[in-house]
Design a binder for these strands. Structure first.
Lengths: 145, 145
DNA sequence: TATTGTTATACTCTATAACTATA
DNA sequence: TATAGTTATAGAGTATAACAATA
């Protein structure tokens, strides 16, 4: 995709285009960084919730991430198969599954989180540190309300 | 989704989360703004190419947008059904379809583009004008190379 | 009756493979 | 043989509906 005729500029200046492709590029970068740990960006999101919250149910994880509870099932199935998380019926309410990181999962999470942070830095490397910080601030402001 | 426990901060500070949700919010905004014209953001992208390039083939539009040529078929079918574009076999190479905006389509495009620009402004309204400009610049910088 | 996890199913989006017609 | 458009099909991703177990 080299320098095309006239539509390039208009097309590539549109905020929709910029946001979409920033996302694509970022996702490609982080998924590559996380691949050695056998997880992707979505998995890492779930692990973050588990790492920062005490014993949680599947439903709570799903709601925190804003995905349907049926979507959590397959995601956690895969993480469980890899020995990263563990599911147990909650003794206090046996409808619930208590989801936790395993020992191995906790170590994998720490390493994956470090790799993710490194990928963030790589992504922002074209901006000065202050421009990078401002970019992140702008995103947070845009998502408020 | 109110103020949750601890994972909120970490989760919602991650660049991946911010970029994804900025995209979702922006897409919702622009799709709503474009709905009165019977098109969405993807359609507008195609119309932009047609509006800024002279008689073009389907394949050229697809390649400019970075989508598969099979994907263009249904997209253009819908726009043709709405009377927004017209397809004619290229007399010089009858394998090609020359795709053009109709009169009505050209008017619809102008109005839709204006609505889109308005939606961009709305999206960026939480930032100062200079912060908005810098945000867009940062996105373009991040997509270079 | 309501809720949690699960399964079956459907829907959207987009790509690959194969077909038609042109070249 | 190769290319443009089309159609059929398949895969990823995620949602809704229905069911089992539990409250």
């Amino acid at each position: 995709m080299s320098t095309e005729a006239s539509p390039g500029p208009d097309l590539h200046r549109a905020l929709g285009y910029l946001l979409k492709h920033a996302n694509l590029k970022f996702t490609a970068l982080t998924d590559a960084a996380l691949a050695p740990f056998g997880i992707d960006g979505k998995d890492l999101g779930a692990l973050r919730v588990l790492a920062h919250r005490d014993p949680t149910s599947q439903l709570q994880v799903a709601q925190t991430l804003g995905v349907d509870r049926t979507t959590m099932v397959a995601l956690l199935d895969a993480l469980e198969d890899k020995g990263i998380i563990r599911r147990q019926p909650d003794p206090a309410d046996r409808r619930r599954n208590v989801v936790e990181l395993t020992e191995q999962g906790s170590e994998a999470y720490d390493a994956a989180e470090a790799a993710y942070q490194e990928a963030e830095k790589t992504f922002l490397a074209a901006l000065s540190p202050s421009a990078g910080a401002q970019f992140r601030r702008a995103l947070r402001t845009l998502l408020e309300d």
